[in-house]
Amino acid sequence: MAASWRLGCDPRVLRYLLGSGGCRRLGLVRGASGWSFGRGASWRWLHSTQWLRVDPIKILMPSLSPTMEEGNIVKWLKKEDDIKVSVNDFIIKAAAVTLKQMPDVNVSWDGEGPKQLPFIDISVAVATDKGLITPIIKDAAAKGIREIADSVKALSKKARDGKLLPEEYQGGSFSISNLGMFGIDEFTAVINPPQACILAVGRFRPVLKLTRDEEGNAQLQRHQLITVTMSSDSRVVDDELATRFLESFKANLENPIRLA
């Protein structure tokens, strides 16, 4: 069984998610228009966007004298790459948070029946010269976005260098496969037994949507669209449960403040 949904958002939301400097807005996406059913189940959503202004991040400096009230930063020691996170990191966090809210999806099939898993460990597919391998982000729901980004970066490097330890890629409770960087719009991934589910993530792509302004004038707005498809073992996660998981996952991903 596979179900998919499409998420539309303004490019400024992407700049926020990707950690671009100077961005002070958070995109909140809501609404749904229509759905269609094919083999399995397929939902198509395209959304309007509201905006919520958020406070800038404060950076505290050590006081160099009892009367010091302000100072100048002469050198930034943290590399720019070290503070960037990707959309994929938010997807991992959103999946982990959703699994925490819906533990019935965080299960496996042990050959005799469903097994409830006490941990939320997300397996992330990484392509290497020797084939595909899935390093694990352990206890992902408890990690922050940047901690997840650091883990993904470190484990991906170890995977490509062939230095992953068995405990770093064996196990896991839920998998994510992202082919967006290869220009793939949407695809269906194969479940990794004994896991029950895998999420297949396509690329962000621009679309135009006809909307109306406050005066009622028609106008075209540019949005970014992403398709995510979930494959699940129906013996463990049936259609109804998979649908509710995707709806909750969609809401969490569209509202990044929930992932804090």
Rank of each mutant, 00 (worst) to 15 (best):
S175D: 05
N192F: 03
R44E: 08
M102H: 06
E247A: 12
D89Q: 07
S248D: 11
I133Y: 00
I120V: 11
G202Q: 02
Q170N: 10
L117C: 12
N255Q: 15
P66G: 10
K157V: 11
A94H: 09
L17F: 09
N252K: 05
D129G: 07
W45H: 14
D239G: 15
I148E: 00
M68A: 15
W51P: 08
L17Q: 05
G38Q: 08
P256T: 03
L132V: 06
L64I: 08
G71Y: 01
N72H: 12
P135F: 00
L117Q: 14
V124D: 01
E186S: 15
D139V: 09
A159I: 02
G113H: 04
L208F: 09
D239L: 07
R15E: 15
E186K: 11
R12E: 15
A32Q: 10
A96T: 05
A95T: 14
G144K: 05
S234G: 08
P114K: 06
E167L: 04
L155W: 00
R39D: 14
P256F: 08
P193E: 00
A200L: 02
N252P: 08
C23Y: 07
L179N: 04
V152S: 05
P256Q: 10
L14D: 09
I122N: 02
P193W: 02
V152P: 03
D110G: 10
Q224E: 12
Q221R: 13
E247C: 09
I83M: 06
L28D: 11
